[in-house]
Amino acid sequence: MIQTWIAEGRIEIDQARLLTLYAAWLMDNVGNKAARTEISAIKVVAPNVALRVIDNAIQAHGGGGVSDDFPLAAMYAGIRTLRIADGPDEVHRMVIARRELRRYAESGADAWASSGAWLMGAGPRAADPARRLGRESVLRVVSRYWPATGCTPPAAPTFPTHPR
């Protein structure tokens, strides 16, 4: 059990950190507006991850964990407020879901999503500058690792353009 807590803690903290760095990168390179989904996402993820880790750490400390001999109890109280302050979790999830759904309110999006082209970011999301950059970095990764597969990389990778 204790090893599971430790492993889960390591996994979740590292996931949350990467997502946060990605949001920071988007803000620096594309702008705060393009990073709205990611900014809301980290606002939900980071406090929830931290609360799980702290709760497990309290449990592992036994009675000491809930006292003020260790900083864990105060940390828990402080971080619990972050699920409310500066926008409750539910509001951030609403922002993310609305932005995600908006893409499907446009006609023609469904057919596109099921065509497989979304894999390379060419679907409805491609209209978003952040997604376009995402696609370009996939391209960079593809071209960097392509030689290792023994295949010849396409001279200029081509992508289907959005039908509309």
Binding site: G9, N32, K43, A46, A57, H61
Partner: peptide
């Protein structure tokens, strides 16, 4: 609120790291 959220989230993860360290 934009940059502030990065600050808050990273600080929160710093606190989580400290909790994990205390647990270990």
């Amino acid at each position: 609120l934009g940059p502030g959220r990065i600050h808050h989230c990273m600080r929160t993860l710093g606190a989580a790291e400290r909790a994990l360290e205390l647990m270990c």
